[in-house]
């Protein structure tokens, strides 16, 4: 039997090691964002070893000292070390940001898959989601916090509730597009069962956009957490968080602006790092761009 020759010779596959480096060079935003975020995470983990003192230790005698060699970021109105508080505060922000991103992604994925496949569930669940989306996330979170006790778990829960609709809508949209695509129909035609189609064909193609969305969720969750703490509706005051520190420094802004400045700068840098990472991932995972590579 005669077989026509294949159209084009295939290029040789690049070596694995070279691939990592090429990847970094091609996506500098991922490298920068990833590195900054990595540093923040390391800082939060190793907070006790970074020349910090007890962030809760009061020392009224040394209150409102300006940044100096002894107090790198100065001290607040109760004489607590702002440097130590800022470093420890990273723990709250990162924990809240990453936990919310994880929880709302998992929930959004589960609900989105169901609504993408079931018309009945879609009609009901998406109207609820629309309702949730019509209220600003911060307001939902404040309302939920007002119903419960101030704790980090409750903050995570409240912000997750506010974020889930966005992830759900994304997943639902992607699933609705994917299920009409010929490769899903081809799988159906070749006898692939429903759950296998879900696992092999739908899920892997849903994850890339969801991963990008997760980074933005993490960034916005950190801002909402800081906002809640700033408004006094978030993390309890005995735990230093960037929002708490800024809230406490707010009244002294004119005499000791550094109390607000340092946690604010750390928050900005962390959010920037996550957003860079997300932007880079979006570009890297875009199949249209990937095909050109």
């Amino acid at each position: 039997m005669t077989i026509a020759p294949t159209d084009v010779a295939l290029p040789a596959a690049p070596r694995a090691q070279g691939r990592v480096w090429t990847y970094v060079r091609r996506h500098p935003t991922i490298a920068i964002g990833g590195t900054l975020l990595g540093l923040m995470v390391l800082m939060a983990i190793f907070a006790p070893y970074l020349g910090t003192v007890d962030p809760q230790a009061l020392s009224p005698v040394r209150r409102l000292r300006w940044p100096s060699a002894q107090y790198w970021f100065g001290t607040d109105m109760l004489g607590r070390d702002v440097y130590s508080r800022t470093i420890y505060g990273a723990r709250v922000s990162l924990t809240v940001g990453l936990s919310v991103a994880l929880c709302s992604t998992v929930l959004g994925l589960a609900i989105g898959l169901v609504t993408g496949f079931s018309r009945a569930a879609d009609a009901i669940v998406m109207r609820v989601m629309d309702g949730l989306m019509s209220i600003p996330g911060v307001l939902i979170a404040i309302a939920l916090m007002a119903l419960t006790r101030a704790s980090m778990e409750n903050v995570i829960f409240a912000i997750t509730v506010a974020q889930v609709p966005r992830d759900t809508r994304l997943v639902r949209g992607v699933v609705l597009t994917l299920r009409e695509l010929p490769f899903v129909e081809a799988a159906l035609a070749s006898g692939t069962g429903f759950f296998r189609i879900l696992w092999r064909h739908i899920l892997p193609n849903t994850l890339p956009p969801l991963l990008v969305q997760a980074t933005f969720t993490a960034a916005s969750a950190m801002i909402v957490e800081a906002t809640l703490s700033f408004l006094g509706a978030g993390t309890p005051p005995n735990i230093p968080s960037w929002g708490n520190i800024m809230a406490e420094g707010r009244s002294l802004f004119q005499v000791a602006y550094y109390i607000v400045l340092f946690p604010g700068a750390f928050l900005s840098i962390t959010v920037l790092a996550i957003n860079l990472l997300g932007d880079g991932l979006r570009d890297a995972l875009d199949p249209r761009l990937a095909r050109r590579m």
């Binding site: 695509l181 490769f183 081809a186 006898g191 092999r200 892997p204």
Partner: peptide, 20 residues
């Protein structure tokens, strides 16, 4: 019956799962 009945689609791009 699907074993007897197969399909080839028009669009060679969207008819193959990009992640397999």
């Amino acid at each position: 019956y699907r074993r007897q009945l197969q399909v080839v689609f028009q669009d060679p791009y969207s008819s193959l799962n990009p992640r397999l």
